[in-house]
Design a binder for these strands. Structure first.
Lengths: 164, 164
DNA sequence: GTCTAAGATGGAATATTTTGGAAAATATCG
DNA sequence: CGATATTTTCCAAAATATTCCATCTTAGAC
């Protein structure tokens, strides 16, 4: 599987970060060596290979009609502000644009968390990641509780096997 | 994707601003090198390549019946007042006309936000953009929250991937 | 009409940031 | 422990942003 694991990585004084070598290989296994960075409302940055991102975007836009006279459409377009192409340098680095760093509350020369998300990676401040992890685990156990409760009243046991 | 990212740019003493190089390239990829500036009721300026703007306008007017007896039609046409052509200079600059600056509460020698919106850019005062961004992100988070709540009771994990 | 002042425009000089590369430091492995 | 790979820091060159200045245009006063 690609893009796994979590790493603590430090930004250099101009806001660049270097990919760990296995993550770098995962990215370079795509032809372009370009990535798309975008800001998620969870307060982190998603970094996907251009190819993956394009596919995701196509699926999303399939339904959507762009009519700039509509406020919803204009706000949809404004997400362009939260998106940026970057090229992975020869040294395996990318620059995280200033504004993006600010939005995620990550600062130059600090360490950030790089989180493998199977089809790409995410970048979190250490603090935000801690919070996110707590939410994920909390959600999981709540869900498990629900499942157990339902089972109390079910007659047969043909559940699907889930996993996290 | 074109016209992405957000930038803090300062106006010079005569109300001109210079495009960042990637934005400039996006504009110059259209033949004319001309842009149309117009004021949006959100309190910002939209700056689109002439070609994009023309197309949008055609579509919009296609639906509008021009009947000068109609106040709606007349008011629609008066938006011409809020619209202006500009040519991108050899140095990659445009002048924001005085009246427009006033309406957006942006002032000479101050910094403004330049916001990529995929088919063009928008110009906001730093303060207004902060507010707008908060609205966009808040809306997003609310949507995410709903999705998570639904997941608590769903059995399988076939969600679609959203993104910006 | 001519003169003056205000503003607009184009160009260039300066200051700042970004970029690519390499050196130093650190970690990893045999 | 030494050798290798990786990470981090640092520096110089390039690119870019910002400021400044000279010129041109316009509008208004006389």
């Amino acid at each position: 599987m690609s893009f796994t694991g979590q790493y603590s990585i430090s930004l250099d004084s101009s806001g660049r970060l270097k990919f760990p070598s296995n993550i770098l290989q995962d990215f370079l296994s795509f032809a372009s060596g370009e990535v798309v960075i975008y800001f998620l409302s969870e307060g982190c940055l998603a970094v996907y290979p251009l190819e993956i991102w394009s596919k995701m975007r196509e699926e999303e836009l399939g339904n959507l009609k762009i009519v700039p006279q509509s406020i919803v459409a204009r706000r949809r377009l404004r997400r362009g502000a939260l998106t940026q192409n970057e090229k992975i340098s020869k040294q395996g680095r990318i620059t995280i644009p200033q504004q993006f760093r600010k939005m995620c509350k990550i600062y130059d020369t600090e360490s950030v968390m790089m989180i493998g998300s199977e089809i790409g990676i995410e970048i979190w401040s250490e603090e935000s990641w801690e919070r996110e992890l707590a939410i994920i685990l909390e959600h999981d156990s709540e869900k498990s509780q629900n499942e157990m409760n339902q089972d109390l009243y079910s007659e047969n046991h043909t559940q699907t096997m889930g996993g996290s």
